[in-house]
Design a binder for these strands. Structure first.
Lengths: 111, 111
DNA sequence: TGATTATACCTAGATATACGATGCATCCAC
DNA sequence: GTGGATGCATCGTATATCTAGGTATAATCA
């Protein structure tokens, strides 16, 4: 089951920051992890992911470095910064507020 | 408090249909009611609302009629159709699924 | 009476965002 | 050595929403 993509808008950033708040990850990994973490409901396409990562990096929300493990294939890891954690907290509050409001309207019942 | 507008995308249709599922309403009324129903968190701008209503109408999800009360100002009322109620049910399921998935990712904790 | 405000409808253009398509390179299994 | 999975990335397109504006009527108040 895949969600109407429009619903995803506005929530991708918080989802990405949440993944990175657990541990540094590389893009491809994040894409797979998102699907796993959400039981296959949410997908994070690469065409969506990379532009957002680059924006977050230029805004100082995440930092990146290339992996240097010997014999390993090169991977670009992203990790969240202090500033990014602040943004995450803010977005978490926003999500709760939004979710609550929608549920409130949906559950309002006949007037 | 106003929500990041991007979060709204994808959920406006379900919110509009929900309001109309309670009773027929006119545009301006819906705009005000949305704010009230969500405790001021969600706003439904007219520039957003009317195009959506027109689309829903041409898709047979809602029907409209002009009010004819004597001495009353003219208002265009919208009411939900059977087909619209079907769409609403579908979108409700979708919302639950989406909300659950996001909460699941956010609440995942450190890996 | 005249001016201001709230109500009530609507459209056009700008903007934002996600996705599909695509490209390139590396690594592993057969 | 070929194919498929991995891994990074960009570009064009589609679509939803907002800002800003336009029109008109009713109510309120000086």
């Amino acid at each position: 089951m895949t969600i109407n993509k429009e619903l995803m808008k506005g929530s991708t950033v918080i989802l990405i920051l949440t993944l990175l708040d657990r541990k540094p990850m590389y893009g491809y990994e994040m894409s797979k992890e998102m699907e796993k973490s959400s039981s296959g409901v949410l997908t994070l396409k690469e065409g969506t992911l990379y532009p957002i990562l680059h924006t977050l990096e230029s805004d100082g929300m995440v930092e990146s470095y290339w992996s240097s493990g010997e014999g390993e294939r090169k991977r670009k890891y992203y990790q969240i910064t202090k500033k990014g954690q602040g943004l995450l907290k803010e977005k978490q509050r926003e999500w709760i507020s939004f979710r609550t409001a929608v549920d409130q309207v949906l559950g309002g019942g006949p007037a």
